[in-house]
Amino acid sequence: MSLKILDTCVNCDVCEPACPNKAISLGEQFYVIDPALCTECVGHHDEPQCMVVCPVECIITDPEHIESHDQLDLKYRQLMAMEPAA
């Protein structure tokens, strides 16, 4: 699953820099997660960093975007392949 930010978000901007995939951005009313970019930190960290740092615990797994660990890992590899070489 990718992750989802609930409307209890206080727009504190703590999650955005914590995301290794740059999947988080400020939406119309509060921060949103792009499911195409969210790997739940698979490939980067042991647990989703946005969930770790969120002070209001408003980030949950998104039931509308169910993905297995293998799918998330594949997404991670695809994202890495798309990154421009340093």
């Binding site: 409307d7 206080v10 727009n11 504190c12 703590v14 509060f30």
Partner: peptide, 9 residues
């Protein structure tokens, strides 16, 4: 009256 505040930590 807005639905969310903007917090700058």
């Amino acid at each position: 009256s807005a639905s969310q505040p903007y917090a700058y930590l």
